[in-house]
Computed example of a mutant assay.
Amino acid sequence: MRPLREPVVTTRAVRVECIPDGRSADLPPGTPAQITQALGGSFTLWVEGQLMRLRGVDADAIGKPVPDAAVATAGSADIGPDELRALVWQTLKTCYDPEIPVDIVELGLVYVCEVLPMEDEGTHDGAFRVAIQMTLTAPGCGMGAVIADEVCDKLLALPGVGEATVDIVFEPPWNRSMMSEAAMLTLGL
C-alpha cells in the first residue's frame, strides 16, 4: 500500500504531537509538510523527517476543513445500554494509531468495553459510564496517552455518556494474531 503524500504548508502556528514518543511540538506558519495519513478525524504529517499527529480541530492550519463528528449520534439522551454499546464500538472504529492505517478495533487493541449505569449522586438519570481497556501494539509506544485521550474525547461526545475512562493494559500482550482478517489484508500481511 502506497502512503498518501499530499504536500501542505501550515497557514498558522499549530501544536502537534511527535510520533512515536508523543511529545508536543509547535509548528510555525509556513512549515512545509506532507500528509501521510488522514483517518479518524486527525492527520499524520511528515515534517522534516519526523512524523507528527495533527488533531482534526486544527485541520485549518494545513488548509483542510475541520472534520465533522466522526460518528453519527443517536440524537437523544434516551439511549439504552445496548444501543449505546453499539455506538461506542462504532466510535472506537474511528480511532487510529497515527502510524498504522487501521482502526484500533480491527487491530485488536480493545480488550474490554463496558457500558454501565452511572451510580454517582448528582448525575442525571439515564447517563452511562463507559470503561475501555485497551492495549498498544508496543508497550513503549509514546502515543498511548494520545490515542487514549482521543478515545475518551470521542466517547464523551456520545449521547448518554456521562463518564468515560480508558485504561491502557498490557495483559495479555498484543500480537499480530489479534488483528482482524481485514486489518491483515490492509497491511499486506
Score class of each variant (00 low, 15 high):
L45S: 01
G49N: 07
T165L: 12
V8K: 09
S42F: 00
L45N: 03
L116Y: 07
H124T: 14
M1H: 13
L185E: 14
G126D: 02
F43R: 03
Y96L: 06
A77S: 13
D153K: 09
L92A: 02
E99D: 05
R129E: 12
S180K: 06
L92E: 03
Y96G: 01
T73L: 07
G144S: 06
V9K: 08
A33F: 07
V169S: 09
T91H: 04
A127C: 12
I132C: 00
T31H: 04
E106L: 09
A69T: 09
R53W: 06
R2P: 07
G188R: 10
K64W: 11
L189C: 07
A74C: 08
K93G: 09
A13F: 09
L84H: 01
R2A: 12
D58Q: 06
M1T: 14
V110H: 07
P117Q: 03
G75Q: 06
D21R: 12
D78K: 14
K93M: 11
E114K: 15
I168D: 07
P159N: 07
D78G: 08
T44H: 04
G49R: 01
I168E: 05
E106D: 15
D125A: 14
S76V: 07
V8R: 09
L156E: 08
V169Q: 05
R85Q: 07
G56C: 03
E83V: 09
T73E: 10
M1I: 11
A157P: 00
A25N: 02
G126V: 10
R85A: 11
A138S: 13
L45F: 03
A69H: 11
D82A: 15
P65S: 01
G108M: 04
M179R: 03
L39I: 05
A127F: 15
D21W: 14
L54N: 02
A70R: 11
L158H: 04
V47C: 01
L158I: 09
T73P: 10
P81A: 06
L54I: 04
V47E: 02
G63S: 00
V57H: 13
A183Y: 09
V16P: 02
K64Y: 07
R15F: 03
T123K: 15
A13M: 10
L109S: 09
H124W: 13
V112Q: 11
V161G: 00
D82Y: 13
R85M: 03
G80M: 00
L136C: 04
A59P: 07
G144R: 10
T94R: 13
Q133C: 06
D167L: 14
A33W: 01
G80E: 04
R53M: 08
A25D: 08
R12E: 12
P98M: 00
G41M: 03
Y96W: 07
D167C: 08
E119I: 06
M118D: 05
E48H: 10
T123L: 13
C18D: 14
K93D: 10
G142W: 11
E150H: 08
V169G: 08
A61F: 01
A59C: 00
D153Y: 06
N175A: 08
Q90L: 06
V151T: 09
T44V: 02
M52E: 05
R12S: 15
E99K: 09
M178K: 14
V161P: 02
D21G: 01
N175D: 14
E181T: 13
K64E: 11
P67L: 02
G126C: 03
L189R: 12
P20R: 02
L84C: 01
A131N: 14
A61L: 06
G49V: 02
V16S: 01
